[in-house]
Design a protein around this nucleic acid. Structure first.
Length: 125
RNA sequence: AAAGUGGACUGGGUGAUUGCGUGCAGCUUCGGCUGUGCGAGGAAAGUCCGGGCUCCACAGGGCAGGACGCUGGCUAACGACCAGUGGGGGGAACCCCAGGACAGUGCCACAGAAAAAAACCGCCCUAAACGCAGAAGACCGUGAGCAAGAUACGCAGCAGAUACGCAGCACUAUUUGUACCCAGGUGUGCUUUUCGGAGCCACCACAUGUCGCAAUUUCGCUAAUAUGCAUUUUGACUGAAUACAGCACACACAGACGCAGGGCAAGGGUGCAAAGGUGGUGUAAGAGACCACCGGCAAUUGGGUGACCAAUUGGCCAGGCAAACCCCGUCCGGAGCAAGGCAAACAGAGAUAACGGGCUGCCCGCCCAGGUCUCGGGUAUGCUGCUAGAGGUGGUCGGUAACGGCCAUCCCAGAGGGAUAAUCACCCACUGCCUUCGGGCAGGGACAGAACCCGGCUUAUAGGUCCACUUUUAUU
RNA sequence: GGGAACAAAGCUCAAAGGAAUGAGCACCUGUGUCCGAAACAGGCGGUUACAGGUUCAAAUCCUGUUGUUCCCA
């Protein structure tokens, strides 16, 4: 889990991102990026009811997404809002796949730089 | 051991690394940091009932509306639960159902004469019209016989055509075609449950029948034995009704039969359902008209807090549906933690004038002067409510039980885009394959995620554990 | 969090408890045409969302599930 100051909290922030953000797609995820007005670096995760009817499964996906993002976030640039939106295929994806996709999307968005910090705290094999 | 019935419990474990929310304590540069405790469920779900709590008149009256419905308990309350009563299902353990259809209205398709005071076929002619018609023996008179046939006749069947001034109708007439024409009865029997139909099986019953390397006694025939004949029992097989044209007989002017008028509701057929059932007596024919038993109803007596049960007596009793409207009894004011409270922010302009708004669908009643509408602007912010409770666990007492009293002990989630996790290793349970029966390899972890809190109900749920009981089989 | 409505042929909808139910469009076949459209004639297509109950009988009445849509804030 991430500390609270790294998370998107307001409903307004979500709707603002969906309107003004830049969208990138992969098989499992969609990443929406927008520049932040200050030095904050916030992230949010959306899993709609379309993915699964069961609340248990949606919660599980969100937890895995957060856990996967946690590995990379120290290396993400400051001053951006990020929103990850789950796609249908994520239901059966493995944790490794999710990690790779997140890393790729962050690179594509140009907000990821490996020199920001040392190695991630837990860059598992 | 197998099959089953009812109930209770459990809902993967251990460790490592990296993380999250929150209570408390300490430190702090007031941003946080450190330590320590806690961190999803039996259904947290559906929101189907019932409460607490909050606000609205501390909650009012009436109507409307809704829910419940055998009896007695239990409870804060309930549609939950416990104990009982009656009915139904099951071989049993056990399970399911539950006010009122003589307060009223309505419905019961098709079929059927009739779906609630019925009469189509049928049975009858006692009484009442001393009815009509009726001698060419009758448009098929009635009865018991004979006997060939296989539709000529009959017919409570079905379908069609034609006809009565015209049009329409038909429990009309005439005519044509066609199907069928049965020796049965009984059964907690079988064919998956119910109803109906059909078939099968078993048993019983019928006959001037037929057959037999079958048995047998009395009598008779034969010289005698066997055989045969006859008789009896038994077995096997076979057959089948009624009506009708035809023939003959009897009855019928002391009035048959028919029409009309009446009596009856036994039988037939229709249907989910047909006016208490079965058997007798009785009668012109019949009928609870009368009798016995059974079912139902009413009264009396006795038992039970009561639903109800038992006994006796009486008269002889007219369907179903209220998850149709309804009647009776009991209960229900409305809205909901996004309730509500405190703080912050916004509180500009115009119009309207007691019309209005608030506690509801309506009426009353009560309350409100920061009333309502339009345009424009702002907000969806922070804190609180927020978790110690009809609480859990253990003991004891009362009670058949649900449940209640008392004592001891424990503190057990509190988020707000919403924490309770991610990855890995080993073990455990399960599934599949291989196996040298030691094991190996692969898959892979039921349903499901708190949002103010409780009591129930309902629905989802892999696997596992335990208790009580029923039936069958085996052993002692 | 609270409240309400709906579900029937491929689609849009009828059907007062009484033949297991229709209509329009679509689809298929035929007629017709050089070919197609229109027209005409005929046909196919339904577990009335699912499960249980009440009733002689349920698309309809009652209860519970599932799905969809809408409303309040």
């Amino acid at each position: 889990m991430l500390p609270r100051e790294e998370r998107l909290c307001r409903r307004n922030d979500f709707s603002h991102l969906q309107k003004a953000g830049k969208s990138l797609r992969s098989r499992l995820l969609r990443l929406i990026v927008a520049p932040a007005p200050d030095e904050r670096r916030l992230v949010g995760f959306t899993v709609s009811k379309r993915i699964s009817k069961k609340a248990t499964e949606r919660n599980r996906i969100k937890r895995r997404l957060r856990s996967a993002y946690r590995v990379f976030y120290p290396q993400v640039n400051r001053g951006v809002f990020l929103l990850f939106v789950a796609q249908d295929a994520i239901l059966n994806a493995s944790f490794d796949e999710i990690q790779i996709q997140i890393k790729r999307l962050l690179g594509e968005a140009g907000v990821y730089s490996s020199k920001n910090a040392g190695t991630p705290a837990c860059a598992s094999d």
